[in-house]
Design a binder for these strands. Structure first.
Lengths: 256, 256
DNA sequence: CAAAAACGTTGATGTTGATCAATCCGCAAG
DNA sequence: CTTGCGGATTGATCAACATCAACGTTTTTG
């Protein structure tokens, strides 16, 4: 499903609210209200406690980097709260955004192949992550079948997500890309119990453009056009989806 | 490394030739001359024999499909000989190629996330694959640490490969894309012990274009231009790399 | 072998989105 | 309140690539 790279997350229908109470470094996966979105899906209490022992957490301020390209790979990170971008510096020194990630998503899997990260991960707002040391995660998933399966599904989901983006970049036109982007964000907000119809963008027009293979002016123009057509409301970073079906209709519109 | 999505495969320096002798359905990973490229990297003899028991093989004629989008996911496949493409049919019914795969590479990992394949895999020449039933692979990799690690590296490598392609599609111009494509093919041929400087393309101009987000005419024009500039030799699908450095120089050429 | 189909090349023209540039808005700091 | 600055908007122009079209070449098929 093209505009829907979150795979099985879609089927999680229950509302999930995102408060945050504990302040200690240890995190209880068994208590976490994101556990139905996260690696812990389907684990029994006993196994959840084993996860608890492995996981610590870390807070990041807006703009702080969780890891950088070239850093040695130590752990995967589950986002508890906040919003991240991942990006790569190309040979010519241009930044290209490879993804935006929100609560319940796992980042860092690019580092497994080389023992070094290939991209940067930056918090776009104050955020908190669960640190899962990779050697421990490997060991644990050798012992817990459902953890192993869940982990593999997350990796595969990332592959499918990337391929959706390849299709977007390879075959869609500017306005289609931006409609797909907005619908995808909206969908992911819904799954997390937030409003699907209004939200704040955490990234700049330039970062959106980088992600979608467009220039910031093109992004801005598309927003304005959608606004004029009554499809969305735009006030800087505050977006309202006024006509989701209208946006979807833009996607099926075959160009030739 | 942008033009180099095969990750650690790069470091395998020894020559690997690709004969094929046995004809029975059972395959001996322990005897396979691709085992240093494949999942079996780093396994000891004992563990290799466990792999042997799991794997069967299948031959495909040119044009045959190994699996289709929507098929239920049963197994991963290691390519023993031949050449494949994977593609997705977009909503509008357009085909988009998501990758070309050759000997030693693993395909099918997109299916793990949903228990169904999201893309088609088609043999572009007569080919042979090793079938690795996924439930058995999971079980085996819970018992064999180095198999588990190798499997995870393959999945991660696929993620990194896809991200390289995202960058190509998001930030490179037509001729850069095509130069990167040729250099990548050349590199992968070298790793497998084939000539890196001359080879047959197994895919059409249209398939190349689909993969690179370009139209077939644009691909054809770029080939002609590179030919005129003495960078490559082109005779239909037979390509010679005459000036690899010249091609590489095209990549660093910042547009603005 | 002949005919058809698939694939590839090349040219002329058109459209999309990039580029260049001016202006505006919102927010933070003094 | 004013100033400065990063971000956003909007307009004018341009370049890259798509599209349309004609023709050539190779492969497949009966």
């Amino acid at each position: 499903m093209l505009i829907n790279p979150q795979g099985k997350l879609q089927s999680v229908d229950q509302k999930v609210t995102i408060p945050l109470t504990s302040n200690n470094m240890r995190v209880a996966c068994s208590q976490c209200n994101l556990r139905e979105l996260c690696l812990a899906v389907g684990l029994d209490d006993d196994d959840l406690h084993k996860l608890d022992d492995m996981v610590t957490k870390r807070k990041l301020k807006r703009g702080q980097q969780l890891y950088r390209a070239g850093d040695s790979f130590e752990a995967l990170y589950a986002i508890r709260t906040g919003f991240f971008k991942t990006d790569i510096l190309t040979e010519e020194g241009l930044e290209q955004v490879t993804g935006f990630q929100m609560a319940g998503e796992i980042i860092g899997m690019d580092g497994i192949s080389n023992d070094h990260h290939v991209c940067n991960a930056t918090a776009l707002e104050d955020s908190e992550v669960c640190i899962m040391p990779y050697d421990q995660l490997e060991e644990l998933s050798r012992g817990i079948k459902s953890l192993q399966q869940q982990f593999h599904k997350f990796m595969s989901r990332e592959i499918v997500r990337d391929q959706s983006l390849m299709i977007l970049l390879g075959s869609m036109r500017a306005e289609e890309r931006i409609a797909a982007f907005l619908l995808n964000l909206s969908q992911r907000m819904r799954v997390r119990g937030y409003s699907a119809s209004e939200f704040h963008l955490r990234m700049t027009r330039e970062e959106i453009g980088s992600y979608l293979g467009l220039k910031l002016e093109t992004v801005s123009r598309a927003f304005s056009k959608f606004h004029d057509e009554g499809l969305i409301g735009v006030q800087q970073k505050y977006i309202r989806i006024l006509n989701a079906d209208g946006l979807k209709a833009l996607l099926n519109h075959t160009p030739s």
